[in-house]
Each structure stands twice: as C-alpha cells, then as structure tokens.
Design a binder for these strands. Structure first.
Length: 279
DNA sequence: CGTGTGCCCTGACAGC
DNA sequence: TGCTGTCAGGGCACAC
C-alpha cells in the first residue's frame, strides 16, 4: 500500500464500476416501480420518467463520459450522473436522508442517494442519444480508440489555456475529472500550467497511455473492491484509491527526485503536481 | 465564438 | 460543546 487513501468523488472509474455493478442485478429485469422522493436533483426529474420506466425491461447498461446509461425496451434510456456525491445502493436495509429515487425489480431494490444533489437523472429517446445536448459535443472516450496523440495534437492546437484546464474540457476528452487529470499529468511528467497548444508531441505520446493507465488501474481496484460491496446494502463504485499527486501537497514526489508535491489553483480548482519532474 | 467566472449543494473539517 | 467559516468540484448559465 503506497498511496494516500481517499473516499472518492464519482469520477469515470467510479461510474464505470457502478455501471458494471448495477448491470449484474438489472440487466434483463423489469422495473416494477420507480419512486421519486423530491421533484429534482440538479434539474427537474423528467415528467414522464415514472410512467415510462414502470414496467419497462432493462436491456443493458453502459457508460458515456461520467454518465451511466440504463437502456430499456421502450426506446428510452434513463441516464444518471452522480455529480459530486451520488451513489447507488442495493437492497438498502433502511432509507437514508438523501435517497431521492427508488427503483425496484422483482429481485432487488435500488436507491439513488446524493447528498449534494449535483447529480441528475434524464430520460432520452435511445435513437437520439448522440444528439442529446450533453452528449452532442463530447470528445472521444479516454479508454476508446478515439483518444490518440494525433487527436490531442489537433484538438489542442493553438490553445492558450493550460493543459490541465484543456483536459478537463469534455469536448477534448470525455470523462476526465480533476483527480485523474492531475494523476495523468504526473504520470506523463507534464507541467499542468503549460499552454495546451505548446505541449510537445513526445509529451502527448506519453499522455495518452498515462490517461489510460490511471483510469484502468482505478477501475481494476474498484472492481476488486466491488466484490466486497456487491451485497445487501452495498454501495457500488466507491472505493479507496492511492494517488501519486492528487491531495499530496507537501509530500515527497514518488519519483524520489527531491521534489515536493505542490498545490496550485487553476480555473478555481486545485491542481497537485511535482515542479521538479513535471515540465 | 472562445474564454473566464460564479453558482448550485451538503458534509467534513479547522479554529475559536 | 457548539458555532462559524472554508473547502470540495462537474456542469451549466452567463458575461465579456
């Protein structure tokens, strides 16, 4: 065990783990009831959500960026975003204050709990998913073939903003959040303040695998933890991770180059990096 | 149109 | 102990 322990925000790996966990219980099942305990999260719940979902059969689940997709046999897809604090619980033994949506099947009950209510639930016509405004402008999936050094070179060309901020821009890469941008830049040894358009080709060639590695490692850790959590009252997708940069202000860089991890603010958010090895 | 800023929200935590 | 202030940040509205 080498890293700082964090109970994480739902970033891409947590969403991926949540989707995989839910899929094991939901795929092929019919929704017997869907109950809303309040009118909205970030935005109002879709007015037809309850009617459309009740009695629908869930065909499969998937993920796009940090959204989880629950596909049904009614040409409608229920899309959830966990925001900053959202999580799904399976077969909760008792209700929690911030359980905002309850979904049941013949086999299980599910609660979507989100204290800060930064999350969202939407219902979109399945055939029109790509045109759904939050999806329409998204860049490639970081774990898909669309992310390459060539794509980044093109997408970042001439950009003055810092590479840290550009990587948080969902139009450039879809699904990266603060934690994994910090981690990927550390791994690729790129200074987060560097103008996006000035990141060199060799750096971009390092950045692409760095992004993939930090995400896949986290998904793998989550997957192993998930086995412990996929039980009654289990929470899906939350697990402790170890980081090399994120949250390690003042601690020594793990490259043992004498650098101390520094925290700076970019776009109103914290960035952690090693000023010695990240150039 | 591209870019930058502030807001939404609650819980955790520090300081007094 | 209990209060107050600060911070966390994804996505979106809005200003320039």
């Amino acid at each position: 065990m080498s890293g700082s322990e964090h109970k994480e925000m739902p970033e891409l790996p947590e969403v991926e783990t949540t989707v995989r966990g839910l899929a094991r219980f939901l795929e092929g099942e019919v929704v017997t009831s869907l109950t809303l305990n309040r009118p909205n999260l970030r935005r109002p719940f879709p007015p037809d959500l309850v009617q459309v979902m009740t009695g629908a059969r869930i065909t499969h689940l998937s993920r796009r960026a940090k959204y989880g997709l629950i596909h049904t046999d009614r040409d409608a897809t229920m899309i959830f975003h966990l925001g900053m604090s959202g999580r799904w619980r399976i077969d909760p033994e008792s209700p929690e204050t911030h359980d905002h949506l309850l979904l049941t099947t013949a086999r299980n009950r599910f609660a979507l709990c989100d204290p800060r209510r930064f999350g969202s639930v939407d219902l979109v016509e399945t055939a029109a998913l790509d045109r759904w405004p939050p999806f329409a402008a998204l860049g490639p999936e970081p774990l898909g073939a669309g992310l390459s050094a060539a794509h980044l070179k093109r997408a970042l060309a001439g950009k003055v903003p810092a590479i840290k901020l550009a990587l948080l821009d969902q139009r450039i890469v879809a699904g990266l959040g603060n934690i994994y941008v910090c981690e990927a830049l550390w791994r690729a040894r790129i200074n987060p303040r560097k103008a996006a358009g000035k990141v060199t080709r060799p750096q971009l060639e390092r950045l692409v695998p760095a992004i993939r590695e930090v995400l896949t490692a986290s998904i793998r850790d989550g997957g192993s933890t998930l086995r412990d959590y996929a039980r009654p009252d289990g929470e899906l997708g939350y697990f402790a991770s170890s980081f090399d940069a994120y949250g390690r202000e003042g601690e020594p860089c793990r490259r043992e180059d004498g650098g101390l991890i520094q925290r700076i603010t970019q776009g109103g958010r914290s960035t952690w990096y090693c000023p010695v090895c990240q150039r």
